[in-house]
């Protein structure tokens, strides 16, 4: 019999370097899963939200039901949302992605629509006067001008998605949430703290990334400022 090692893992400390080095593989896999689930759902959310917002802008009557529906979806607690999708998708990563897409829709559609509505009527008239067709008007005038508002929505949606992925642990696809869940059942403090901190770091990094993307693609918003 060898004596139990007296390191921070054995003492179950919150901060533990040995945990980081010995579980590097597991942590990395969880981070990758977390990033995949988040980015996939935000991308799908965007693909659905842009046409929805454009349609709601074009036909005024469609705006109310679209906004009402997405608000209702947003009110449903995440645990219930994932559970309601269970009969459709079973215990799969698709279920988590579908739930996250539904959540991101609210923020994305709302902000995109606000951005599109904020495009000044004079600007639209001027573009029409220059001979812009509806499609060219949308793609080269309205959408770019809606970008700042849309990016604000995208940032909030992404940060929320990063934190909501953890609830996916209930079906076994929660990225870092899986580590938090199993750490809770075994009272493994280092694992819970490390995974939680990583989660917040991912959210902050994603937010900063989107902020710099916004800075790059909207040069006109900072023109004229010293």
């Amino acid at each position: 019999m060898t004596a139990a090692p007296d390191d921070c893992l054995a003492r179950n400390e919150w901060i533990c370097g040995a945990y980081l080095s010995s579980r590097r593989r597991i942590l990395l896999d969880a981070v990758v899963q977390h990033l995949q689930l988040t980015s996939l759902s935000i991308l799908i959310g965007l693909l659905i939200a842009v046409p929805l917002a454009v349609l709601a802008r074009r036909w005024g009557w469609a705006a109310t039901p679209v906004l009402a529906l997405t608000t209702v979806l947003y009110t449903i607690p995440s645990l219930a949302m994932f559970s309601l999708l269970l009969p459709l998708y079973g215990l799969s990563a698709t279920l988590v992605v579908a739930g996250l897409v539904l959540y991101s829709l609210t923020l994305l559609v709302r902000n995109l629509l606000a951005g599109l509505r904020a495009v000044p009527e004079e600007t639209r008239q001027a573009a029409r006067g220059l001979g812009y067709g509806p499609l060219r008007l949308l793609l080269t005038v309205e959408l770019p001008l809606a970008l700042p508002a849309a990016m604000a929505g995208l940032r909030i949606a992404t940060v929320s998605a990063v934190s909501l992925v953890t609830v996916g642990a209930i079906v076994g696809y929660g990225g870092l949430g899986n580590l938090i869940y199993s750490g809770m059942n075994t009272y493994f403090k280092a694992q819970v703290l490390t995974a939680s901190v990583l989660c917040v770091l991912i959210a902050v990094a994603a937010d900063l990334l989107l902020l710099s993307v916004q800075w790059l693609i909207t040069p006109w918003t900072r023109a004229g400022r010293p």
């Binding site: 940060v159 934190s163 909501l164 938090i180 917040v200």
Partner: peptide, 9 residues
Amino acid sequence: AVPTFAVLV
């Protein structure tokens, strides 16, 4: 940015 679930655990 802080996951509810993480704070609870």
